[in-house]
Amino acid sequence: MANPLEQFQIKTLVPIQMGSVDASLTNAGLFMVITVAAISLFLSLGMRQRSLIPGRWQSMAELSYEFIAGMIRDNVGSEGRKYFPFIFSLFMFILFANLIGLIPYAFTFTSHIAVTFTMAMVVFLGVTVIAIIRHGLHFFTLFLPSGVPMVMAPVLIPIEVLSYLSRPISLSIRLFANMMAGHTMMKVFAGFIIPLGILGGWAPLGVDVALTAFEFLVAFLQAYVFTVLTCLYLNDAIHLH
């Protein structure tokens, strides 16, 4: 039986060396390029006609735009409009990476902690910088909500600081673990199909079909969760609770 973790192996396709740094195009890098190309094609071809009454494809492109615009409006408010391109890019990047990763033999780069943690850190640092620029020292009131008695401060502040610092960790592990677990499960059940033969093989095949459908849901849901949490963090940064 094939190792279910083999699918996560990073393989170098085009070796590139920049000084002492390895900048090779790997299968992960290739799928990042494919993802960006797919998003660009999806939007530019969808909006090619710019028709007043949208067709199906244009509707999908407009739907994705309005989905993220609505998410920012609801969770951040009008000040969030500035960050719309970033949040939209983030959502589409994760969503397309997850969905493309579901194609057999494709590589899912969101199943790598290095990628998800980097994205989470960019969000975390960006949000913290925005908060400090907007509020200066008032930013630290985030760790002590107003109206809390001072006696509670020694307990509350460490908890709040810890929960704030754990944001990028939970954000990155949630996405990475979901993608990795889903793909591993599918591979494990797929590995049973041939060994169980023509009689017993149907059961793991059925499970895999169900899992595939479930993974489509997870692919969308995780992109959504990552984006919504980014919006909530941004809201905290702009409005400080």
Partner: peptide, 19 residues
């Protein structure tokens, strides 16, 4: 390193294309 370099590169391209 190769993952992060390509992540940065592709995401910047995506961001610029989108915005």
């Amino acid at each position: 390193p190769p993952q992060l370099i390509w992540l940065g590169l592709t995401f910047v391209v995506l961001y610029v294309t989108m915005s």
